[in-house]
Nucleic acid binder design. Structure first.
Lengths: 164, 164
DNA sequence: ATAAATTCTAGTTTATTAGTATACTTTTGA
DNA sequence: TCAAAAGTATACTAATAAACTAGAATTTAT
C-alpha cells in the first residue's frame, strides 16, 4: 500500500507551489528541488508528467518555471497520485480507472474483492476530496497550533478539511 | 497503493481455508493452489511465511497440510498484509510498524504527512477490524443475495461487517 | 545574440516481484 | 520398517518497476 517516490515528490512539489505567495507565478525547478530535498533531474521528469496531465503549466526561458494550471482548490491529491503512481485500488478488480477482471469464479461474491473495494473507496474518499488548498489550510493551522501549544490533548484530531 | 501478489495470494489462501467445513482441518497446498489459481511453489513460500508468523500451523506427512492457527474471527486481514507486504502506511513517516523520519523540516506541520496519516488510518481501520470470519460472512451474504436478486438498487451498499 | 530556463528522449542502476529449482526433513499408513 | 506424502529451507533467476542520470534541443527575456 505504498506511494512511490514519484508520487511523494510530485505531491510535495505541488504543495510547495500552492504555498508560494502567488501559486500562479512561475517557480524554478531547482528552487522546489532545494526546498523539498528532491533530486533535480528526477523532479524535472515528474513535473513534465504533471504538465502533460494538465496539472501544471510552464514557461521556458529566462524567468520561466512551473506554475499551477488551476486554482489550488481545483487540484485534488487523487488526480495527482493517479497520474504519477497509477490506480488507487489495491487490486485491479476494484479499480475505477484501470479495472481488470480477476481469476475468481464470481466477482460479486469474492471475499477479497469485497474487502478491497472498501479499502479502495476509503482511500479515494480522502484523496479525491482533499485539494492542494485544503492541505495549505491544514499546514497553516498546524503551524499556529505549534506556536501556542496551550492546551492540546495528545490525540488532537486535526481534521481541518474544508467541506466541498 | 498496491497489494502485491504475495499479499493477494496469501489472503486468498486464508479466506479459502476459513471457508472450509472445518477451518482447523489440514488442507493440502496443492488443493488451495488449484482452487485459487495460485502457482504451487509460490504458495508454498507464502504459507510458510504465514506459519512462521503464527497465523497458520501445519502437519507433515500423509494426510497432512495447513490449517489456521487461530479461530477465523481472531485473524485480521491487517495482520496478514503486514506479514506478507509490509506496512500499511503509504509513506514511512506515518507508519506504526516501520516508522522512519522523513526529510521535511517539521513533521507536525508537513502537509503531505498530515494527509497520508489520514489515509494510513483509513486503511488500517478497515483491515485491522476485518477478520477472516467477517469475510466468510460477507461472502455468504453475497451468495444469498445473488440467488434471489429480488429488488436490489444498482448501488446497494453491502457493508455487512460484524461490529467487534 | 546569448544566457537562462524548460523540453524531451533515452539510458543506467538498483530493488522488488514473482516465480523455479533442488535438496532435505518430518510424518505416517501399510 | 520404509516408502510415499507432505512440508522446510535456500538458493537462483527472469522480468518489471523505481529511482535516478545524461545530454542535446528548444524557448525566451534581455
Amino acid at each position: 500500500m505504498k506511494l512511490t517516490k514519484r508520487g511523494e515528490y510530485g505531491l510535495k512539489a505541488l504543495i510547495d507551489l500552492a504555498a508560494q505567495a502567488d501559486p500562479q507565478a512561475a517557480t524554478q525547478i531547482k528552487d522546489i528541488a532545494q526546498r523539498q530535498q528532491i533530486p533535480v533531474k528526477f523532479l524535472e521528469q515528474i513535473l513534465l508528467t504533471l504538465k502533460n496531465a494538465g496539472v501544471l503549466r510552464s514557461r521556458a526561458g529566462v524567468g520561466g518555471g512551473y506554475y499551477l494550471a488551476k486554482e489550488p482548490r481545483e487540484i485534488t491529491l487523487g488526480q495527482v497520485v493517479r497520474v504519477l503512481d497509477g490506480p488507487l485500488a489495491p487490486i485491479p478488480c476494484v479499480s475505477q480507472m484501470a479495472y481488470e477482471r480477476c481469476v475468481c469464479a464470481d466477482e460479486a461474491t469474492c471475499g477479497l474483492r469485497l474487502t478491497m473495494l472498501d479499502v479502495r473507496n476509503a482511500i479515494a474518499d480522502i484523496l479525491d476530496q482533499t485539494t492542494l488548498a485544503d492541505v495549505s489550510t491544514r499546514v497553516e493551522n498546524a503551524q499556529h497550533a505549534e506556536q501556542r501549544p496551550a492546551r492540546r490533548s495528545s490525540k488532537a484530531k486535526t481534521t481541518t478539511r474544508t467541506t466541498r
